[in-house]
Amino acid sequence: MDLEVIYSYIPRFVEAFWLTLKIGWFGILIAFIVGILTAFAVHFKIPVLSKIAGIYIEIFRNTPLLVQLFFIYFGLPKLGIRVSAESCGAVGLGLLGGSYMAEAIRSGLDAISLAQTESALALGMKKTQVFKYIILPEAFSLSVPAIVANLIFLLKETSVFSAISLMDLMFTAKDLIGLYYDTTETLFLLVIFYLIMLLPVSLIGNAVEKKYRYRMLGQ
């Protein structure tokens, strides 16, 4: 490996890194919002909306992000819906992630036993108070492992952004290999930058998970 080559490539990777991270976290934010709304619609069996939410979840969980992006970026403009590559990446990731987050949150909500709700009601709490102080925090702590897994999954999925010509880490790596054939150095940097992006999330995620597991229901 040539260290000088590596040094000279770093600025391009840093730039691509920030772009990937920006779109990635923006997409994850969308995923959270979409996921929470659809999970509520399904869990509370809101008429019509729960059906739509259910179909949405099934469709987006059963198709690859790459295909979703192709459809949004190349297909939709034919209907007059045009989005920039960056928005397309964020929206695509958000829609994919929303369906995964919805499942995670819904299964947390579903896991709270009726008796917990009843015991809170028996203490004189109103329904909104029961939801706010009992159901929501318990459901959240039950969903934490799945949410952490989804975060890592979604950050990894950003690696297909290059398909819609976003200059992300993959795009940069492919470009550099094509231009200069410094394959080893480029791949090394590619791995390092993905580790920088994913390792902290993985480590923090593990710690958070442990904390919530400790607080969860006894065996």
């Binding site: 890592i152 990894k156 999925e157 950003t158 690696s159 297909v160 993959m170 790596a173 492919k174 290999i177 394959t183 080893t184 791949l187 590619l190 791995v191 993905y194 580790l195 994913l198 390792l199 993985s202």
Partner: peptide
């Protein structure tokens, strides 16, 4: 598990 499959593909195919 931490590496995107895309990166793994590049590692094997180009590497």
């Amino acid at each position: 598990r931490i590496m995107p499959q895309m990166v793994l593909l590049f590692l094997v195919y180009f590497g």
